[in-house]
């Protein structure tokens, strides 16, 4: 049971921690106050409890695939917000107060939506063990280990980003955000395939022999770049399309700002 709770908690915490630390590092260099993160986490946890306690109702929607559809919707929302954020961030380098507030609002939405999606699964898992004292220690221990690894990785990424050279941070953060966002797009595609809303196909490749998804490094890569051992063509297209779309839009807005500044 210990390993199970480590994996479940780690997978969800790691992804949220990674998004939070990249956004926190970006806030820091843009001179945005960090208090939005408290709101985002609070809203996210509240949302995930509400979502988790209504999973039974949601599951029955859309002929029994409501869960997939709503989760895909959440993932797509996170992806879209991340794209808007990255583009807006690139377009407004010298942020005034109004810009900062808009960026703060976007980050709050991204993080709280991500936590709603990630956190609800932890709550569902834990709710199954309420009253079962025999499993208390292993589950609590596993949860702590998983959360500990996830949060530590997030903290290290945050300080790693901040300790880089000032002009590299926005580029690296954008690439990191792009890969996290692409992971969201890929996940959304997978969920819609599972719901039979998108065509199901044979997997393009299978790398589970070298790097199983349920290993710690597999989980780390899943959170970081949305690693999937055997993706289908639709999924891979969503992933790489999402990745390139974000980077392309950011590059475009950067270019336009530059030419604006020159002209």
């Amino acid at each position: 049971m210990l390993l199970t709770s480590v994996i479940i908690v780690l997978r969800e915490v790691l992804e949220a921690a990674l998004i939070i630390s990249v956004l926190l590092a970006l806030s820091r260099i843009a001179g945005i106050r960090l208090n939005w993160v408290r709101w985002a986490i609070g809203l996210g946890v509240l949302g995930s409890v509400i979502y988790a306690s209504n999973t039974a109702i949601v599951s029955d929607w859309f002929d029994g695939v409501g869960q997939e559809v709503i989760n895909a919707l959440l993932q797509i929302s996170v992806y879209v917000c991340l794209v808007i954020f990255a583009v807006y961030f690139a377009a407004t380098h010298k942020a005034d107060d109004a810009n900062k507030q808009r960026l703060q609002a976007l980050m709050t939405v991204v993080v709280s939506l991500a936590i709603v999606r990630e956190g609800s699964e932890i709550f569902l898992y834990l709710s199954g063990f309420v009253g079962d004292m025999t499993q208390f220690t292993p589950i609590l221990t596993g949860g702590l280990v998983g959360a500990g690894i996830g949060i530590s990785a997030g903290a290290l990424v945050y300080y790693l980003l901040l300790n880089l050279k000032r002009d590299i941070i926005p580029y690296l953060s954008t690439v990191l955000l792009a890969s996290v966002a692409a992971g969201m797009a890929g996940q959304a595609a997978l969920l819609l395939i599972q719901a039979d809303w998108l065509p199901s196909q044979q997997a393009l490749w299978d790398s589970s022999q070298w790097l199983p998804e349920d290993s710690v490094s597999g989980q780390l890569l899943y959170a970081l770049i949305g690693y999937e051992a055997s993706p289908t063509p639709v999924q891979a297209a969503a992933y790489f399309g999402g990745f390139l779309l974000l980077l392309g839009l950011v590059a475009l807005s950067r270019y336009r700002r530059k030419s604006h500044a020159d002209g």
Binding site: L2, L3, V145, I151, S152, A155, Y159, V216
Partner: peptide, 27 residues
């Protein structure tokens, strides 16, 4: 804060991953 957070995070990662390995091997 920087030193405490980074030291503690590094230690947590190393110790927890080592503990997981130990757990798997013992299992």
């Amino acid at each position: 804060t920087f030193l405490v957070v980074v030291l503690l995070a590094t230690m947590t990662l190393v110790v927890f991953i080592a503990a997981l390995r130990g757990y798997r091997a013992s299992m």
